[in-house]
Design a protein around this nucleic acid. Sequence first.
DNA 1: TAGTGGTCTAGACCACTGC
DNA 2: CAGTGGTCTAGACCACTAA
Lengths: 254, 254
Amino acid sequence: MSLEAPRARYQQVADELRAAIKSGTYAAGAPLPSQPELARRYGLNQTSINRAIAVLRAEGLVRVEHGRGAFVQEVPAVKRVRRIGSDYDGSTGEKIYEDELRRAGLSPRAEPVTVDVVIPPAEIAVALRLSDTDHALMRRRRMYADDAPMEIATSYIPMSAAGGPDIAFPDTGPAGMYVRLAERGFGPVRFTEDIEVRAATTDEARFLRIGAGQPVFELSRTAFDSRDRPVEASANVLAALQWRLRYQWRRERE
Amino acid sequence: MSLEAPRARYQQVADELRAAIKSGTYAAGAPLPSQPELARRYGLNQTSINRAIAVLRAEGLVRVEHGRGAFVQEVPAVKRVRRIGSDYDGSTGEKIYEDELRRAGLSPRAEPVTVDVVIPPAEIAVALRLSDTDHALMRRRRMYADDAPMEIATSYIPMSAAGGPDIAFPDTGPAGMYVRLAERGFGPVRFTEDIEVRAATTDEARFLRIGAGQPVFELSRTAFDSRDRPVEASANVLAALQWRLRYQWRRERE
DNA sequence: TAGTGGTCTAGACCACTGC
DNA sequence: CAGTGGTCTAGACCACTAA
Protein backbone atom coordinates (compact mmCIF):
# COMPACT_ATOMS: atom_id res chain seq x y z
CA MET A 1 0.00 0.00 0.00
CA SER A 2 1.45 3.34 -0.97
CA LEU A 3 0.00 6.60 0.19
CA GLU A 4 1.72 9.70 -1.09
CA ALA A 5 -0.25 12.71 -2.14
CA PRO A 6 -1.18 16.21 -1.10
CA ARG A 7 -4.04 14.60 0.80
CA ALA A 8 -3.83 13.56 4.45
CA ARG A 9 -3.02 9.89 4.84
CA TYR A 10 -5.80 9.25 7.29
CA GLN A 11 -8.17 10.73 4.71
CA GLN A 12 -6.81 8.41 2.05
CA VAL A 13 -7.32 5.44 4.35
CA ALA A 14 -10.87 6.64 5.00
CA ASP A 15 -11.38 6.97 1.24
CA GLU A 16 -10.22 3.43 0.61
CA LEU A 17 -12.31 1.95 3.40
CA ARG A 18 -15.34 3.93 2.25
CA ALA A 19 -14.92 2.62 -1.27
CA ALA A 20 -14.48 -0.93 0.05
CA ILE A 21 -17.69 -0.61 2.06
CA LYS A 22 -19.67 0.77 -0.84
CA SER A 23 -18.36 -1.88 -3.21
CA GLY A 24 -19.41 -4.58 -0.77
CA THR A 25 -15.94 -5.78 0.20
CA TYR A 26 -17.12 -5.29 3.76
CA ALA A 27 -20.79 -6.20 3.95
CA ALA A 28 -23.33 -4.53 6.21
CA GLY A 29 -22.75 -5.63 9.78
CA ALA A 30 -19.35 -7.15 8.99
CA PRO A 31 -16.31 -6.12 11.03
CA LEU A 32 -13.51 -4.04 9.59
CA PRO A 33 -9.95 -5.26 10.17
CA SER A 34 -8.62 -4.23 13.56
CA GLN A 35 -6.77 -0.96 13.92
CA PRO A 36 -3.36 -2.58 14.46
CA GLU A 37 -3.98 -4.73 11.38
CA LEU A 38 -4.91 -1.71 9.27
CA ALA A 39 -1.89 0.17 10.60
CA ARG A 40 0.32 -2.68 9.45
CA ARG A 41 -1.32 -2.81 6.00
CA TYR A 42 -0.99 0.90 5.35
CA GLY A 43 2.33 1.35 7.09
CA LEU A 44 0.81 3.91 9.43
CA ASN A 45 0.50 4.54 13.12
CA GLN A 46 -2.58 3.28 14.96
CA THR A 47 -3.41 6.85 15.87
CA SER A 48 -3.82 7.72 12.21
CA ILE A 49 -5.96 4.65 11.58
CA ASN A 50 -8.12 5.59 14.54
CA ARG A 51 -8.61 8.96 12.95
CA ALA A 52 -9.57 7.43 9.62
CA ILE A 53 -12.20 5.34 11.40
CA ALA A 54 -13.45 8.49 13.13
CA VAL A 55 -14.13 9.99 9.70
CA LEU A 56 -16.26 7.02 8.70
CA ARG A 57 -18.08 7.13 12.03
CA ALA A 58 -18.95 10.77 11.47
CA GLU A 59 -20.38 9.81 8.09
CA GLY A 60 -22.50 7.11 9.68
CA LEU A 61 -20.87 4.38 7.60
CA VAL A 62 -19.26 2.59 10.51
CA ARG A 63 -20.37 1.75 14.03
CA VAL A 64 -17.73 1.02 16.65
CA GLU A 65 -18.19 -1.21 19.68
CA HIS A 66 -15.48 -0.61 22.19
CA GLY A 67 -13.47 -3.75 22.81
CA ARG A 68 -15.20 -5.64 20.01
CA GLY A 69 -14.38 -3.92 16.77
CA ALA A 70 -15.63 -1.59 14.06
CA PHE A 71 -18.61 -2.73 12.00
CA VAL A 72 -20.19 -1.56 8.78
CA GLN A 73 -23.34 0.28 9.73
CA GLU A 74 -26.47 -1.40 8.41
CA VAL A 75 -28.65 1.44 7.17
CA PRO A 76 -32.37 0.67 7.24
CA ALA A 77 -33.91 0.89 3.81
CA VAL A 78 -37.10 2.01 5.46
CA LYS A 79 -38.53 5.42 4.85
CA ARG A 80 -40.43 7.45 7.31
CA VAL A 81 -43.35 8.70 5.30
CA ARG A 82 -45.96 11.34 5.75
CA ARG A 83 -48.57 11.78 3.10
CA ILE A 84 -49.90 15.28 3.03
CA GLY A 85 -52.93 16.43 1.11
CA SER A 86 -53.94 12.86 0.42
CA ASP A 87 -57.15 11.16 1.50
CA TYR A 88 -55.61 10.51 4.87
CA ASP A 89 -57.60 10.75 8.08
CA GLY A 90 -55.69 13.65 9.51
CA SER A 91 -53.65 12.18 12.32
CA THR A 92 -50.44 13.41 10.69
CA GLY A 93 -49.29 10.21 9.21
CA GLU A 94 -48.67 7.91 12.18
CA LYS A 95 -50.73 5.06 10.78
CA ILE A 96 -49.35 5.30 7.27
CA TYR A 97 -45.88 5.55 8.70
CA GLU A 98 -46.37 2.32 10.62
CA ASP A 99 -47.82 0.61 7.56
CA GLU A 100 -44.76 1.66 5.62
CA LEU A 101 -42.54 0.04 8.22
CA ARG A 102 -44.57 -3.19 8.09
CA ARG A 103 -44.37 -3.22 4.31
CA ALA A 104 -40.59 -3.05 4.66
CA GLY A 105 -40.73 -6.13 6.85
CA LEU A 106 -40.16 -4.35 10.15
CA SER A 107 -42.26 -4.48 13.28
CA PRO A 108 -42.90 -1.09 14.77
CA ARG A 109 -43.12 -1.16 18.53
CA ALA A 110 -43.67 1.56 21.09
CA GLU A 111 -42.87 1.59 24.76
CA PRO A 112 -45.76 2.57 27.01
CA VAL A 113 -46.13 6.30 27.08
CA THR A 114 -45.06 8.30 30.13
CA VAL A 115 -47.31 11.18 31.07
CA ASP A 116 -46.41 14.25 33.15
CA VAL A 117 -47.71 17.72 33.80
CA VAL A 118 -44.76 20.06 33.34
CA ILE A 119 -43.72 23.59 32.52
CA PRO A 120 -42.56 22.99 28.96
CA PRO A 121 -39.17 24.05 27.56
CA ALA A 122 -38.95 27.52 26.08
CA GLU A 123 -39.30 26.54 22.42
CA ILE A 124 -42.41 24.51 23.11
CA ALA A 125 -43.89 27.27 25.24
CA VAL A 126 -43.44 29.70 22.36
CA ALA A 127 -45.04 27.30 19.89
CA LEU A 128 -48.02 26.80 22.22
CA ARG A 129 -48.17 30.52 23.11
CA LEU A 130 -47.86 29.77 26.82
CA SER A 131 -46.46 32.06 29.50
CA ASP A 132 -43.51 31.11 31.72
CA THR A 133 -45.80 29.68 34.37
CA ASP A 134 -48.33 27.80 32.20
CA HIS A 135 -48.30 24.04 32.41
CA ALA A 136 -48.66 21.45 29.68
CA LEU A 137 -49.31 17.74 29.51
CA MET A 138 -46.17 15.97 28.33
CA ARG A 139 -46.36 12.55 26.71
CA ARG A 140 -43.08 10.81 25.93
CA ARG A 141 -42.30 7.45 24.45
CA ARG A 142 -39.51 5.63 22.73
CA MET A 143 -40.16 3.73 19.56
CA TYR A 144 -38.47 0.74 18.02
CA ALA A 145 -38.47 -1.06 14.70
CA ASP A 146 -37.62 -4.74 15.05
CA ASP A 147 -36.10 -3.97 18.46
CA ALA A 148 -33.77 -1.42 16.90
CA PRO A 149 -34.23 1.93 18.60
CA MET A 150 -35.77 4.35 16.19
CA GLU A 151 -37.21 7.48 17.62
CA ILE A 152 -37.79 9.52 20.75
CA ALA A 153 -41.24 11.07 20.58
CA THR A 154 -42.35 13.86 22.90
CA SER A 155 -45.67 15.65 22.72
CA TYR A 156 -47.00 18.64 24.69
CA ILE A 157 -50.63 19.70 25.03
CA PRO A 158 -51.61 22.90 26.87
CA MET A 159 -53.58 22.12 30.03
CA SER A 160 -56.31 24.42 28.77
CA ALA A 161 -56.91 22.01 25.89
CA ALA A 162 -56.06 18.77 27.68
CA GLY A 163 -58.23 19.36 30.75
CA GLY A 164 -56.26 16.81 32.73
CA PRO A 165 -53.91 13.85 32.46
CA ASP A 166 -56.84 11.53 31.81
CA ILE A 167 -56.89 12.57 28.17
CA ALA A 168 -53.74 10.49 27.63
CA PHE A 169 -55.49 7.25 28.63
CA PRO A 170 -56.24 4.73 27.35
CA ASP A 171 -53.11 5.16 25.25
CA THR A 172 -54.07 4.89 21.59
CA GLY A 173 -51.26 7.03 20.19
CA PRO A 174 -51.44 10.47 18.57
CA ALA A 175 -54.46 9.61 16.44
CA GLY A 176 -56.47 8.82 19.59
CA MET A 177 -55.29 12.03 21.22
CA TYR A 178 -56.55 14.01 18.26
CA VAL A 179 -59.98 12.41 18.51
CA ARG A 180 -60.16 13.30 22.18
CA LEU A 181 -59.05 16.84 21.54
CA ALA A 182 -61.75 17.13 18.89
CA GLU A 183 -64.36 15.94 21.40
CA ARG A 184 -63.29 18.79 23.65
CA GLY A 185 -63.56 21.32 20.82
CA PHE A 186 -59.85 21.53 20.05
CA GLY A 187 -59.67 19.30 16.99
CA PRO A 188 -56.46 19.98 15.04
CA VAL A 189 -56.89 21.02 11.42
CA ARG A 190 -53.64 22.73 10.48
CA PHE A 191 -50.10 21.51 10.96
CA THR A 192 -46.63 23.00 10.79
CA GLU A 193 -43.58 20.81 10.82
CA ASP A 194 -40.05 22.15 11.22
CA ILE A 195 -37.07 19.99 10.44
CA GLU A 196 -33.75 20.68 12.07
CA VAL A 197 -30.49 18.77 12.16
CA ARG A 198 -28.18 19.00 15.15
CA ALA A 199 -25.60 16.91 16.98
CA ALA A 200 -27.10 14.24 19.22
CA THR A 201 -26.89 14.69 22.95
CA THR A 202 -25.11 11.89 24.77
CA ASP A 203 -28.43 10.48 26.01
CA GLU A 204 -29.92 10.47 22.54
CA ALA A 205 -26.79 8.91 21.06
CA ARG A 206 -26.90 6.13 23.62
CA PHE A 207 -30.53 5.30 22.96
CA LEU A 208 -30.32 5.55 19.17
CA ARG A 209 -27.06 3.57 19.17
CA ILE A 210 -25.13 6.10 17.18
CA GLY A 211 -21.85 7.83 17.91
CA ALA A 212 -21.82 10.84 20.20
CA GLY A 213 -22.28 14.00 18.20
CA GLN A 214 -23.71 12.32 15.13
CA PRO A 215 -26.48 14.31 13.46
CA VAL A 216 -30.10 13.75 14.44
CA PHE A 217 -33.32 15.01 12.95
CA GLU A 218 -35.44 17.02 15.31
CA LEU A 219 -38.96 17.19 13.90
CA SER A 220 -41.05 19.84 15.61
CA ARG A 221 -44.72 19.67 14.77
CA THR A 222 -47.34 22.13 15.90
CA ALA A 223 -51.05 21.42 15.43
CA PHE A 224 -53.66 24.20 15.33
CA ASP A 225 -57.42 23.94 15.71
CA SER A 226 -60.03 25.61 13.52
CA ARG A 227 -59.74 28.81 15.54
CA ASP A 228 -55.97 28.76 14.95
CA ARG A 229 -55.10 28.02 18.54
CA PRO A 230 -52.05 25.77 18.99
CA VAL A 231 -53.32 22.56 20.61
CA GLU A 232 -50.27 20.30 20.40
CA ALA A 233 -46.54 20.65 19.95
CA SER A 234 -44.34 17.63 19.50
CA ALA A 235 -40.63 17.00 19.08
CA ASN A 236 -39.39 13.77 17.56
CA VAL A 237 -35.73 12.82 17.43
CA LEU A 238 -34.25 10.20 15.11
CA ALA A 239 -30.86 9.38 13.61
CA ALA A 240 -30.48 11.68 10.62
CA LEU A 241 -28.11 9.45 8.65
CA GLN A 242 -30.43 6.44 8.79
CA TRP A 243 -33.73 7.88 7.70
CA ARG A 244 -35.35 9.60 4.80
CA LEU A 245 -38.33 11.86 5.30
CA ARG A 246 -40.94 12.15 2.61
CA TYR A 247 -43.54 14.85 2.11
CA GLN A 248 -46.16 14.83 -0.58
CA TRP A 249 -48.65 17.40 -1.73
CA ARG A 250 -50.76 18.55 -4.67
CA ARG A 251 -51.32 21.88 -6.30
CA GLU A 252 -54.49 23.46 -5.05
CA ARG A 253 -55.48 24.97 -8.37
CA GLU A 254 -54.91 23.37 -11.73
CA MET B 1 -7.88 24.58 34.94
CA SER B 2 -8.30 21.12 36.33
CA LEU B 3 -9.62 18.29 34.23
CA GLU B 4 -9.96 14.98 35.97
CA ALA B 5 -12.93 12.72 35.37
CA PRO B 6 -13.99 9.52 33.64
CA ARG B 7 -14.55 11.69 30.59
CA ALA B 8 -11.95 12.29 27.89
CA ARG B 9 -10.09 15.55 28.41
CA TYR B 10 -10.58 16.70 24.85
CA GLN B 11 -14.31 16.19 25.38
CA GLN B 12 -14.21 18.28 28.53
CA VAL B 13 -12.41 21.04 26.66
CA ALA B 14 -15.03 20.81 23.93
CA ASP B 15 -17.76 21.01 26.59
CA GLU B 16 -16.26 24.13 28.12
CA LEU B 17 -15.76 25.85 24.79
CA ARG B 18 -19.28 24.91 23.72
CA ALA B 19 -20.70 26.38 26.91
CA ALA B 20 -18.61 29.52 26.46
CA ILE B 21 -19.91 29.92 22.92
CA LYS B 22 -23.52 29.43 23.93
CA SER B 23 -23.20 31.83 26.84
CA GLY B 24 -21.79 34.47 24.52
CA THR B 25 -18.26 34.56 25.91
CA TYR B 26 -17.18 34.07 22.33
CA ALA B 27 -19.58 35.94 20.08
CA ALA B 28 -20.62 34.81 16.60
CA GLY B 29 -17.77 35.39 14.20
CA ALA B 30 -15.24 35.97 16.98
CA PRO B 31 -12.01 33.97 17.06
CA LEU B 32 -11.33 31.33 19.68
CA PRO B 33 -7.96 31.45 21.44
CA SER B 34 -5.22 29.79 19.42
CA GLN B 35 -4.51 26.12 19.94
CA PRO B 36 -1.18 26.69 21.68
CA GLU B 37 -2.89 29.20 23.97
CA LEU B 38 -5.68 26.75 24.83
CA ALA B 39 -3.12 24.00 25.37
CA ARG B 40 -1.33 26.22 27.88
CA ARG B 41 -4.58 27.12 29.66
CA TYR B 42 -5.75 23.56 30.04
CA GLY B 43 -2.34 22.05 30.58
CA LEU B 44 -2.82 19.79 27.57
CA ASN B 45 -1.04 18.93 24.37
CA GLN B 46 -1.92 20.82 21.21
CA THR B 47 -2.99 17.54 19.64
CA SER B 48 -5.73 17.17 22.24
CA ILE B 49 -6.86 20.75 21.77
CA ASN B 50 -7.01 20.18 18.03
CA ARG B 51 -9.25 17.23 18.70
CA ALA B 52 -11.55 19.28 20.93
CA ILE B 53 -11.89 21.84 18.15
CA ALA B 54 -12.68 19.02 15.73
CA VAL B 55 -15.65 18.08 17.92
CA LEU B 56 -17.02 21.61 17.74
CA ARG B 57 -16.46 21.69 13.99
CA ALA B 58 -18.45 18.51 13.58
CA GLU B 59 -21.28 20.13 15.51
CA GLY B 60 -21.20 23.14 13.25
CA LEU B 61 -20.41 25.52 16.12
CA VAL B 62 -16.98 26.49 14.91
CA ARG B 63 -15.51 27.24 11.52
CA VAL B 64 -11.75 27.00 11.06
CA GLU B 65 -9.68 28.96 8.56
CA HIS B 66 -6.30 27.42 8.10
CA GLY B 67 -3.55 29.79 9.10
CA ARG B 68 -5.98 32.35 10.48
CA GLY B 69 -7.78 30.80 13.41
CA ALA B 70 -10.97 29.16 14.61
CA PHE B 71 -14.13 31.26 14.60
CA VAL B 72 -17.55 30.89 16.13
CA GLN B 73 -19.89 29.90 13.32
CA GLU B 74 -22.56 32.48 12.66
CA VAL B 75 -25.74 30.51 12.12
CA PRO B 76 -28.29 32.25 9.90
CA ALA B 77 -31.59 32.75 11.66
CA VAL B 78 -33.24 32.35 8.31
CA LYS B 79 -35.66 29.59 7.65
CA ARG B 80 -36.20 27.90 4.39
CA VAL B 81 -39.95 27.72 4.09
CA ARG B 82 -42.37 25.86 1.92
CA ARG B 83 -46.05 26.43 2.38
CA ILE B 84 -48.10 23.47 1.29
CA GLY B 85 -51.83 23.43 0.81
CA SER B 86 -52.02 27.20 1.02
CA ASP B 87 -53.21 29.58 -1.66
CA TYR B 88 -49.83 29.36 -3.28
CA ASP B 89 -49.40 29.40 -7.06
CA GLY B 90 -47.89 25.96 -7.31
CA SER B 91 -44.25 26.55 -8.13
CA THR B 92 -43.23 24.65 -4.98
CA GLY B 93 -42.36 27.54 -2.81
CA GLU B 94 -39.48 29.29 -4.56
CA LYS B 95 -41.11 32.71 -4.42
CA ILE B 96 -42.26 32.46 -0.83
CA TYR B 97 -38.86 31.14 0.09
CA GLU B 98 -37.18 34.19 -1.42
CA ASP B 99 -39.67 36.49 0.27
CA GLU B 100 -38.82 34.85 3.57
CA LEU B 101 -35.15 35.57 3.00
CA ARG B 102 -35.85 39.20 2.19
CA ARG B 103 -37.96 39.54 5.30
CA ALA B 104 -34.98 38.30 7.28
CA GLY B 105 -32.93 41.08 5.74
CA LEU B 106 -30.99 38.92 3.32
CA SER B 107 -30.63 39.33 -0.42
CA PRO B 108 -31.15 36.11 -2.31
CA ARG B 109 -29.02 35.88 -5.42
CA ALA B 110 -28.63 33.17 -8.02
CA GLU B 111 -25.84 32.57 -10.44
CA PRO B 112 -26.90 32.19 -14.06
CA VAL B 113 -28.17 28.71 -14.68
CA THR B 114 -26.06 26.22 -16.62
CA VAL B 115 -27.94 23.97 -19.00
CA ASP B 116 -26.85 20.58 -20.37
CA VAL B 117 -28.37 17.56 -21.98
CA VAL B 118 -27.10 14.55 -20.05
CA ILE B 119 -27.77 10.96 -19.10
CA PRO B 120 -28.91 11.58 -15.52
CA PRO B 121 -27.52 9.79 -12.46
CA ALA B 122 -29.21 6.54 -11.49
CA GLU B 123 -31.43 7.92 -8.73
CA ILE B 124 -32.77 10.66 -10.97
CA ALA B 125 -33.35 8.19 -13.81
CA VAL B 126 -35.42 6.04 -11.48
CA ALA B 127 -37.46 9.00 -10.29
CA LEU B 128 -38.12 10.06 -13.88
CA ARG B 129 -38.72 6.46 -15.02
CA LEU B 130 -36.02 6.72 -17.68
CA SER B 131 -33.97 3.90 -19.17
CA ASP B 132 -30.17 3.81 -19.05
CA THR B 133 -29.89 5.55 -22.38
CA ASP B 134 -32.56 8.23 -22.04
CA HIS B 135 -31.39 11.80 -21.83
CA ALA B 136 -32.61 14.63 -19.66
CA LEU B 137 -32.18 18.37 -19.60
CA MET B 138 -30.08 19.35 -16.59
CA ARG B 139 -30.27 22.84 -15.12
CA ARG B 140 -27.82 23.69 -12.35
CA ARG B 141 -27.21 26.84 -10.39
CA ARG B 142 -25.68 28.00 -7.17
CA MET B 143 -27.56 30.30 -4.89
CA TYR B 144 -26.39 32.85 -2.38
CA ALA B 145 -27.90 34.91 0.42
CA ASP B 146 -26.03 38.15 0.99
CA ASP B 147 -23.05 36.67 -0.84
CA ALA B 148 -22.97 33.74 1.58
CA PRO B 149 -23.20 30.48 -0.36
CA MET B 150 -26.48 28.82 0.39
CA GLU B 151 -27.57 26.09 -1.91
CA ILE B 152 -26.66 24.00 -4.94
CA ALA B 153 -29.77 23.45 -7.02
CA THR B 154 -29.95 20.87 -9.79
CA SER B 155 -33.03 20.06 -11.83
CA TYR B 156 -33.65 17.37 -14.45
CA ILE B 157 -36.43 17.29 -17.03
CA PRO B 158 -36.90 14.32 -19.37
CA MET B 159 -36.24 15.28 -22.99
CA SER B 160 -39.68 13.93 -23.88
CA ALA B 161 -41.20 16.69 -21.76
CA ALA B 162 -38.61 19.39 -22.34
CA GLY B 163 -38.52 19.09 -26.14
CA GLY B 164 -35.14 20.81 -26.28
CA PRO B 165 -32.75 23.04 -24.36
CA ASP B 166 -34.69 26.12 -25.44
CA ILE B 167 -37.24 25.51 -22.71
CA ALA B 168 -34.64 26.69 -20.16
CA PHE B 169 -34.45 30.17 -21.73
CA PRO B 170 -35.08 32.90 -20.90
CA ASP B 171 -34.17 31.88 -17.38
CA THR B 172 -37.03 32.73 -15.07
CA GLY B 173 -36.39 30.07 -12.46
CA PRO B 174 -38.44 27.00 -11.59
CA ALA B 175 -41.77 28.84 -11.68
CA GLY B 176 -41.11 29.81 -15.29
CA MET B 177 -40.13 26.27 -16.15
CA TYR B 178 -43.41 24.99 -14.78
CA VAL B 179 -45.37 27.44 -16.91
CA ARG B 180 -43.50 26.28 -20.00
CA LEU B 181 -44.03 22.64 -19.13
CA ALA B 182 -47.75 23.35 -18.71
CA GLU B 183 -47.85 24.94 -22.19
CA ARG B 184 -46.46 21.71 -23.55
CA GLY B 185 -49.06 19.64 -21.72
CA PHE B 186 -46.84 18.53 -18.86
CA GLY B 187 -47.96 20.91 -16.11
CA PRO B 188 -46.94 19.57 -12.71
CA VAL B 189 -49.74 19.05 -10.21
CA ARG B 190 -48.36 16.64 -7.66
CA PHE B 191 -45.07 16.79 -5.77
CA THR B 192 -42.99 14.44 -3.66
CA GLU B 193 -40.08 15.72 -1.64
CA ASP B 194 -37.58 13.43 0.07
CA ILE B 195 -35.22 14.77 2.70
CA GLU B 196 -31.95 13.05 3.33
CA VAL B 197 -28.93 13.96 5.40
CA ARG B 198 -25.46 12.82 4.39
CA ALA B 199 -21.85 13.94 4.68
CA ALA B 200 -20.88 16.70 2.27
CA THR B 201 -18.61 15.86 -0.63
CA THR B 202 -15.40 17.88 -0.73
CA ASP B 203 -16.77 20.02 -3.58
CA GLU B 204 -19.97 20.76 -1.71
CA ALA B 205 -18.07 21.55 1.48
CA ARG B 206 -15.84 23.98 -0.35
CA PHE B 207 -18.75 25.84 -1.93
CA LEU B 208 -20.91 25.90 1.18
CA ARG B 209 -17.92 26.90 3.32
CA ILE B 210 -18.38 24.12 5.83
CA GLY B 211 -15.97 21.49 7.05
CA ALA B 212 -15.41 18.38 4.94
CA GLY B 213 -17.83 15.68 5.98
CA GLN B 214 -20.27 17.98 7.72
CA PRO B 215 -23.90 17.01 7.20
CA VAL B 216 -25.86 18.45 4.31
CA PHE B 217 -29.53 18.27 3.43
CA GLU B 218 -30.25 16.70 0.09
CA LEU B 219 -33.77 17.63 -0.93
CA SER B 220 -35.04 15.49 -3.81
CA ARG B 221 -38.24 16.74 -5.35
CA THR B 222 -40.19 14.97 -8.06
CA ALA B 223 -43.04 16.69 -9.86
CA PHE B 224 -45.82 14.75 -11.63
CA ASP B 225 -48.31 15.98 -14.18
CA SER B 226 -52.05 15.31 -14.19
CA ARG B 227 -51.48 11.96 -15.90
CA ASP B 228 -49.02 11.05 -13.13
CA ARG B 229 -45.99 11.19 -15.38
CA PRO B 230 -42.82 12.48 -13.68
CA VAL B 231 -41.91 15.72 -15.43
CA GLU B 232 -39.14 17.08 -13.21
CA ALA B 233 -36.72 15.77 -10.62
CA SER B 234 -34.53 18.13 -8.67
CA ALA B 235 -31.85 17.76 -6.03
CA ASN B 236 -30.95 20.66 -3.77
CA VAL B 237 -28.04 20.59 -1.37
CA LEU B 238 -27.60 22.90 1.61
CA ALA B 239 -25.74 22.91 4.92
CA ALA B 240 -27.89 20.90 7.31
CA LEU B 241 -26.67 22.55 10.49
CA GLN B 242 -27.49 26.05 9.27
CA TRP B 243 -31.02 25.67 8.04
CA ARG B 244 -34.47 24.76 9.20
CA LEU B 245 -37.03 23.37 6.79
CA ARG B 246 -40.68 24.05 7.31
CA TYR B 247 -43.65 22.22 5.86
CA GLN B 248 -47.24 23.22 6.40
CA TRP B 249 -50.49 21.52 5.56
CA ARG B 250 -54.16 21.27 6.48
CA ARG B 251 -56.47 18.38 7.10
CA GLU B 252 -58.48 17.66 4.02
CA ARG B 253 -61.67 16.74 5.86
CA GLU B 254 -62.89 18.41 8.97
C1' DT C 1 -5.76 -13.24 29.38
C1' DA C 2 -5.29 -11.51 24.79
C1' DG C 3 -7.37 -8.64 21.60
C1' DT C 4 -10.10 -4.79 20.69
C1' DG C 5 -10.72 0.42 20.46
C1' DG C 6 -9.84 5.20 23.03
C1' DT C 7 -6.85 8.61 24.83
C1' DC C 8 -2.74 11.17 25.59
C1' DT C 9 2.07 12.91 25.12
C1' DA C 10 6.24 15.36 23.40
C1' DG C 11 7.93 16.56 19.63
C1' DA C 12 8.31 17.25 14.85
C1' DC C 13 7.24 19.10 10.36
C1' DC C 14 4.12 20.98 7.02
C1' DA C 15 0.76 24.46 4.88
C1' DC C 16 -1.41 28.62 5.08
C1' DT C 17 -2.06 33.68 6.45
C1' DG C 18 -0.72 38.28 7.12
C1' DC C 19 2.56 41.50 7.93
C1' DC D 1 8.91 36.41 9.07
C1' DA D 2 5.98 34.84 13.11
C1' DG D 3 1.69 32.88 14.16
C1' DT D 4 -1.97 30.03 12.90
C1' DG D 5 -4.02 25.28 12.23
C1' DG D 6 -3.14 20.22 10.25
C1' DT D 7 -0.76 15.95 10.26
C1' DC D 8 2.07 12.28 11.87
C1' DT D 9 4.97 9.36 14.93
C1' DA D 10 6.38 6.02 18.58
C1' DG D 11 5.12 4.74 22.47
C1' DA D 12 2.37 4.41 26.46
C1' DC D 13 -1.63 3.39 29.24
C1' DC D 14 -6.50 2.76 29.84
C1' DA D 15 -11.30 0.58 29.18
C1' DC D 16 -13.95 -2.82 27.35
C1' DT D 17 -14.99 -7.67 25.47
C1' DA D 18 -14.73 -12.46 25.07
C1' DA D 19 -12.86 -16.78 26.07
